[in-house]
């Protein structure tokens, strides 16, 4: 009896597994399809796209659309390509991610290990900031940036994104550090370590997984943001706004191959971040909940 039931259990498992893999494969293909279309059409001459099949492989392979998108395409009125805007985005995203992550970590540390009267309220308010829609803050934000003299500059955008991101990063780090044993902090206090020494020597070294989560989250959000970029970018607009200007330009023929190349360029940095740190992402998201 036992052998029989075990037998069926195994074969059932095998069938189920084949089914699951097929399904996953199908999903993967489905999700890869747009990337495929973008990829092959970005290396075709324009004539092949307008005259032929979007799905077909190119007859003539060319990198001209990429060159054009990067350095010569018409963005708004200037034929600069996406290059300067890409740079703007980098200059914005790196400090914004770094600052919001560090501040989030410090907030999480204080909110869990240096509890003070009303700390849950402070945390609640920070959490609340995660739910405020972008649109609501546009006008007050514009006024603040104007008063600070940061309107239309990269530092202005950095400030906006840091302020908007702190709610999320604080949430991540607070939940992660809540599971971190307080006895360790007490031991370090007895050992004579100060506020920053404890943070730097005890907590930070074990914060890898959650830092990855925070960085990925912040990077994708800030890099992909359009609204703040369009509203406060001024002369230093980020990549997303430039891409929009490239694709939406109403003059001349629509250079689809250039648009595709530009879109891929705009997506590359986030893809890169996911490839490098993606496997830590899930691990980090889980860590806070599983650890005793």
């Amino acid at each position: 009896m036992a052998a029989v039931t075990q037998d069926t259990a195994v074969s059932m498992g095998r069938i189920a597994r084949v089914f699951i893999y097929l399904l996953l494969l199908l999903f993967a293909l489905f999700y890869l399809l747009p990337l495929y279309v973008m990829g092959i059409n970005s290396v075709k001459p324009l004539a092949e796209i307008t005259g032929g099949n979007m799905m077909a492989l190119p007859q003539v392979w060319t990198l001209d659309p990429w060159r054009s998108a990067w350095s010569t395409a018409q963005i708004g009125v200037e034929p600069t390509g996406l290059k300067p805007y890409f740079l703007n985005s980098i200059l914005m995203v790196v400090p914004a991610v770094a600052i919001s992550t560090i501040v989030g970590a410090l907030n999480g540390y204080v909110l869990t290990k240096w509890r003070f009267r009303g700390d849950t309220w402070v945390f609640g308010l920070m959490l609340f900031s995660c739910f405020i829609p972008f649109q609501i803050v546009l006008i007050p934000m514009a006024m603040v940036l104007g008063k600070l003299g940061l309107a239309g500059t990269v530092p202005g955008l950095v400030l906006v994104h840091v302020v908007y991101g702190i709610g999320f990063t604080t949430l991540y780090f607070r939940n992660y550090y809540a599971a971190f044993p307080t006895e360790l902090v007490r031991a370090a206090q007895i050992d004579g370590a100060g506020f920053f020494q404890i943070f730097w020597r005890i907590l930070l070294p074990v914060s890898g997984p959650i830092a990855v989560v925070s960085v990925i989250w912040q990077f994708t959000n800030i890099w992909n943001d359009f609204l703040f970029g369009a509203s406060f970018g001024g002369t230093s607009q980020p990549m997303t706004v430039a891409l929009n200007n490239l694709v939406q330009s109403s003059t001349g023929v629509k250079e689809y191959n250039v648009h595709f190349a530009g879109a891929i360029l705009a997506a590359l940095p986030t893809l890169f971040v996911y490839f490098v740190a993606g496997r830590y992402f899930v691990r980090g998201l889980m860590a806070g909940s599983v650890k005793g």
Binding site: P181, E183, L184, R186, V206
Partner: peptide, 8 residues
Amino acid sequence: FQSYALYP
């Protein structure tokens, strides 16, 4: 400490 509290 009860949990030993060794720095991991």
